[in-house]
Computed example of a mutant assay.
Amino acid sequence: MALFDLPLPELRTYRASTPEPPGFDDFWSGTIAAARQAASPPKVAEVRTPLRGITSYDVTFSGYAGQPVKGWLSRPAGATGPLPVVVEFIGYGGGRGLPIEWLLWPSAGYAHLVMDTRGQGGNWRGGDTPDPDEHGAGPSSPGFLTRGVLAPETHYYRRLITDAVRAVDTAAELPDVDASRLVVTGKSQGGALSLAAAGLNPEKVSAVVSGVPFLCDIRRAVTITDSDPFQEVVRFLRANPNLAPQVLATLDHIDVVHFAKRITAPAIVSVALMDAVCPPSGVFAAYNAIPDAAGKQIEVFEWDGHEGGRGFFDTTALEFVAGRLA
């Protein structure tokens, strides 16, 4: 993929033009309060793996509307004392898979909770958390971005973002973790969820790592890229052009730019200038919305597509978090 978005100097100052929807705070605070009210204590059970340096646990916690969400908790074997904890969210189409697939953060000395993604896990990694059908009523394009898109109340990402906030709540309550040193991380969809969770749960998040985040500056993204998942919206509106105002108004409620404005923790973000999946202007729109006072940095990968820095970004992210939590 060649360079297709704004030149880098313009990206560095780019701001999204979509205003925050009316009642945004009330919508999200009400949703999260209801999920917390419906929550049950998490269930944590050790699982056997071939690994000798990592101990892993099967976790079930309460997400949106109290519905059960799965996860894996891993920590360095034999670690004593409360550990800083990293909550990780997964890219589009993937589920939690197996504990052996999540070694980066526990190998670096952290407790690590990876949240399964409701209704996903049928693409490149398996999952174990259903998304009850009654919440996604109405027409949709194949995929998740238009599921329940005719109203913010029924949209798929209302549920998934609430799950992410509840994952942070759960991580802070787990035994033998230091809740004062809690990190959220993820790439693509996971990067979007890390920014959303940090913006909606700022009092619990100590640092943010967001790789090539999805769901940024959505109204622009659907007009400048031919790649999925944003093309799901285009296909839906091609079939239902009269629904465009309604659909875009719903998507405004999950645009990560609006969550980013509420982040108070130090944040590191990666952007790839040849990324047609998560266009760089959207990533910069979210990054530029994070208050400077939070302490932030962006890693630009000029020659990358959606791989977004690969191990180079992982290394920098580990160093960033270690420095912020020291």
Rank of each mutant, 00 (worst) to 15 (best):
L3C: 02
D5F: 11
P9T: 13
E10Q: 15
S17A: 15
T18S: 11
P22Y: 10
W28A: 12
T31Q: 08
A33W: 04
A34Y: 08
A34R: 15
A35R: 11
A35P: 09
A35Y: 10
Q37D: 13
Q37V: 07
K43I: 09
K43G: 05
A45I: 12
V47Y: 04
R48V: 12
T55K: 03
Y57M: 04
Y64V: 05
P68V: 05
G71N: 08
L73T: 02
R75N: 03
G78S: 10
P82R: 15
L83F: 08
V86A: 13
F89Y: 14
Y92Q: 07
G94I: 03
G95N: 11
G97V: 14
W102C: 12
S107Y: 09
A108Y: 08
Y110Q: 09
H112I: 09
V114Q: 11
G122Q: 04
G122P: 00
D133A: 15
E134H: 12
P142H: 11
T146C: 14
G148I: 15
A151N: 11
H155P: 12
R159Q: 14
A167T: 00
T170A: 04
P175V: 14
P175F: 10
S180Q: 03
V184A: 03
G186M: 10
K187S: 11
K187Q: 07
G191L: 04
A192I: 08
A192T: 07
L200N: 01
K204T: 03
S206M: 01
P213Y: 04
P213C: 07
P213D: 04
L215K: 02
I218E: 01
V222Q: 01
V222P: 00
I224R: 01
E232V: 01
V234C: 02
R235K: 06
P245W: 13
L248H: 09
D252Y: 06
I254P: 08
V257K: 03
V257E: 03
H258P: 04
F259G: 04
K261D: 01
R262L: 08
A265N: 05
A265I: 05
A265V: 05
I268H: 08
M274A: 09
V277Y: 00
A285K: 03
A286H: 07
I290H: 06
A293V: 05
A293W: 00
A294S: 14
Q297K: 13
E299V: 14
G309T: 03
G311I: 05
F312I: 10
F320M: 06
F320V: 06
L325N: 03
L325C: 04
